[in-house]
């Protein structure tokens, strides 16, 4: 591809963002004006500018909370995704194990994490552990389902080709199954990346002395909606950054044309 071609593509990509940015700015403007015009009390709905000022003044302290939450989310994401990947590998090679264990995975998926979080906090206290575990649990299922599907997404003929070459199981795994699965794995990881942040925050609600979830709960007790909104903005920003990092990792890993399942 030529440099000029890449440049054109980047410019047209910007053009697709322009309506989204304009709409976003317009929505913020309407919010601001509406709150001023109707004289809405701050404890119900702060003005956009007030949230901005709060973010500016409290930025560093809020950022430290965000950093903590992101640490929990990333650790949980890594643990949950790794476990899910290993489980998927076992499932694909041992049907009987899948039959025995998959119902457990579904049960785990259907229990609301809001219900497990307090229990884990009782067991592990105000530590990092319950947050990481919750984030891991919430990441597990989407990665498991997508990876198992990806590892199976190989054609019968590709398997025959490997048989004709008398390829070992390890060769079939690394040279065929794993590359075929990557687009699926990343689809799972992208879902998991946003869920992990939510999981960490929910876990913080049930008992924490720092983190964005802690900030939000504290602010809500004090009807400090400015701070609450600032927390919301930051947690969303953290999720977006994490999501895009996974997207970047995908673009670096899955490079062949026509591979990505859906464009983000």
């Amino acid at each position: 591809m030529t440099g000029a071609g890449a440049g054109t593509r980047r410019r047209s990509k910007w053009r697709t963002y322009v309506p989204a940015i304009l709409l976003f700015l317009a929505a913020l403007g309407i919010w601001e004006l509406w709150v001023v015009a109707r004289d809405v009390p701050t404890y119900l709905l702060p003005r956009v500018s007030e949230i901005g000022i709060e973010l500016g003044e409290q930025g560093w302290s809020l950022f430290r909370h965000l950093r903590w939450t992101m640490l929990e989310a990333v650790l949980g994401f890594l643990a949950g995704s790794t476990a899910a990947f290993l489980a998927a590998v076992i499932f694909v090679h041992m049907r009987a194990v899948e039959g025995a264990l998959f119902p457990w995975a579904i049960v785990l998926q259907t229990i609301p994490i809001v219900a497990i979080a307090p229990l884990l906090t009782i067991w592990f206290g105000f530590t990092l552990v319950p947050k990481v575990v919750i984030a891991a649990i919430i990441c597990f299922f989407p990665v498991l389902v997508n990876t198992a599907r990806g590892l199976r997404s190989i054609s019968a003929q590709a398997v025959e080709l490997m048989s004709v070459l008398s390829a070992r199981k390890t060769a079939v795994f690394w040279r065929l199954r794993v590359p075929s699965s990557l687009p699926y794995v990343f689809a799972g990881l992208r879902i998991a990346s946003t869920l992990a942040v939510i999981g960490a925050i929910v876990a913080e609600f049930t008992g924490a002395d720092r983190g964005i979830g802690f900030v939000i709960i504290q602010a809500s007790y004090r009807l400090d909606t400015k701070r609450l909104f600032a927390g919301l903005v930051l947690s969303s920003a953290g999720g977006i950054v994490f999501f895009n990092l996974i997207g970047l990792l995908e673009r670096l890993t899955v490079r062949w044309p026509g591979a990505r399942l859906q464009e983000s």
């Binding site: 054609s155 003929q157 080709l161 040279r175 990557l182 062949w256 591979a259």
Partner: peptide, 14 residues
């Protein structure tokens, strides 16, 4: 044996 299938069965990542 060498085997050529009805479809190419190439690995798209290679």
């Amino acid at each position: 044996f060498g085997f050529v299938f009805q479809s190419p069965v190439l690995f798209p990542w290679l």
